[in-house]
């Protein structure tokens, strides 16, 4: 089953305009050692839809996000239950390779982390070298990825400059371009704007809206306005004291913010706690 999909992704590399994959968490629970931090999370993240995960700090949003591309298991004591399905296949199952899962489900981190030892162009193409793949027209891929991340016009004259010389917002968009260059089906974003100023934040949000038809996007954010602006689906996480985090409510973003069913959701989105 995996073989035709690999071919498809290689073909998509030449003309990167995929529609994205459907990602679904089924009864996901997470532990760090003996401490349970997340319990029974069921979320379906559809293609063409931006899904926002909101909730106060320490409620397990980021942990959930990291289970979606198997970054969770990088912590030695981390374990999980349940399954995560990418287009119907369990990413924790034997049928998919770990590296293939992570390539198809990209991730943008809270802190911009371009590779300091590489140039801007090398950063964008890093995913190819790191996954050991060849591409016929590398320059074209760099340009396409940078355009999709909305950074091309700012860096087109200094592609050979070190990536560390970019501003924070540009670095974050470079990281988005780097993730897009390996043509993922899903892009996970872990508070991508929390370290950025309002202007850079707006650029990133524009980028998200432009990308949402090509890649399935899941974003963790603490910013209620941002969740309203960029997402169509929204899930509210909450953890009571000494209890694991749970999804309290999920649904269309509009409904979550205008007409939440649960009073705790209403309190949170209206800024009464958290």
């Amino acid at each position: 089953m995996t073989v035709p999909e690999v071919d498809q992704s290689v073909a998509a590399e030449a003309a990167p305009a995929p529609v994205g994959g459907v990602l679904e968490g089924v009864q996901v629970s997470c532990w760090f050692g003996a401490r349970k931090v997340l319990e029974g999370v069921d979320i379906k993240m559809d293609a063409g839809v931006v899904t926002a995960l909101i909730g106060p700090s320490g409620c397990g949003k980021s942990t959930f996000l990291r289970t979606l591309n198997r970054m969770h298991e990088l912590v030695p004591i981390a374990t999980l239950a349940g399954s995560v399905l990418l287009d119907g296949h369990d990413i924790y199952g034997a049928g998919l390779r770990l590296t293939e899962v992570r390539r198809r489900i990209g991730m943008v981190f809270q802190k911009p982390n371009p590779f300091p030892a590489m140039t801007i162009a090398d950063n964008v193409a890093a995913g190819l070298r790191l996954t050991g793949r060849k591409v016929r027209d590398r320059d074209d891929l760099v340009e396409t990825s940078l355009r999709r991340a909305g950074l091309w016009n700012e860096v087109r004259n200094r592609l050979g400059a070190p990536a560390g010389g970019l501003s924070g917002g540009q670095q974050q968009r470079l990281c988005i371009a780097r993730s897009l260059a390996v043509s993922p089906d899903v892009l996970l974003m872990d508070e991508p704007c929390s370290a950025l100023d309002p202007t850079s934040t707006r650029r990133i949000e524009e980028t998200i809206l432009e990308l949402k038809d090509q890649v399935t996007i899941v974003i963790v954010t603490h910013n209620m306005q941002q969740a309203q602006r960029v997402s169509q689906h929204c899930a509210f996480f909450l953890a009571a004291e000494d209890e694991p985090g749970r999804v309290i409510e999920q649904g269309p973003t509009e409904q979550i913010f205008s007409d939440p069913h649960d009073p705790r959701t209403a309190d949170y989105v209206n800024g009464r706690f958290g």
């Binding site: 970054m71 992570r102 198809r104 991730m107 990281c175 780097r178």
Partner: peptide, 8 residues
Amino acid sequence: EAALALGA
């Protein structure tokens, strides 16, 4: 983490 998240 960034490198691993790219599928390396």
